[in-house]
Design a protein around this nucleic acid. Structure first.
Lengths: 145, 145
DNA sequence: CTATGTGCAAATCTTTTGCAGGCTA
DNA sequence: TAGCCTGCAAAAGATTTGCACATAG
């Protein structure tokens, strides 16, 4: 589950701070660090709690695992991130909150964006009586050949 | 997570036995019981381990939770069932092994089939170089209104 | 009779939570 | 200063596993 994170510079710290400010989250040292790793370079990123925890440790400013979990939860609650369910044993989090399709690489357990423009529904069923469609998850599972 | 299971009669035991035989699985008392609950009426069914465990208990012939887990795993390995990932905290199993779309009722945590004919892709992306598409999961998340 | 399957309890793994001390506004 | 945040360790919940006993072929 190799994940490549933003190199941290002044710019990424600034970007992370803006990102937190958008959601009225207190810019603590830990949140700034995690935010920088997540959106420091303006790219969208897919992480697991464990992966982000390791990235923080590698970056030289460790954040406790509990705080990584709590922070990812806070980011989701604040609408900054979304949780993607692809694997029964692990949660994935995406810095992009739009409903979009994903590739899941079964060999490396890596989650990436699928080109959204190329996944189009010809039709979707009418939601059953009394229900509305909250979201449509599309996971394209890939195997190396 | 109310799940309604097959009423067990001679027919359902027969059906369950055939189902096991198709996969060369030994027809033990526990497997026959679970198979009957799953495919006894020829309907496709979506279960969690806990739900199936309770159904067995209610049916008057309990099966231990560990065996329910091991058996569901065995049924999947044998190609009789498939595992559907919709919820990070629980695994769902489907007696239908074809790749087909699902409704997930967020309020009751219930998983049902979506009318497959009505979910058509206009297009799917080309799998990235060196990969092939193993499966495409479509989960339509529903909220009650 | 031998290989498999079952059940219990214990282990494992991911995620959450209680609580004491620290830090932002 | 008040309240939110962090980290640690413990708790919780789902699933797996080790092992002794049972059972199908």
């Amino acid at each position: 589950m190799e994940q490549d994170f933003a190199k941290l510079g002044a710019a990424s710290l600034k970007t992370g701070a803006d990102w937190l400010a958008r959601a009225d989250l207190r810019p603590t040292r830990q949140r700034l660090r995690l935010a920088s790793l997540l959106v420091g370079d303006g790219q969208s990123r897919h992480v697991t709690a464990e992966g982000l925890f390791l990235a923080a440790k590698d970056s030289g400013e460790p954040v406790s695992l509990a705080t990584v979990y709590n922070t990812l939860r806070a980011f989701c609650d604040a609408g900054l991130m979304s949780e993607i369910t692809v694997d029964a044993t692990r949660s994935y989090f995406d810095t992009c909150v739009e409903d979009h399709p994903h590739f899941f690489w079964e060999d490396t357990q890596e989650l990436t964006d699928a080109p959204s423009a190329e996944v189009a529904f010809a039709s979707l069923p009418e939601p059953p009586e009394g229900a509305r469609i909250a979201r449509v998850d599309v996971i394209i599972r890939l195997k190396r050949r």
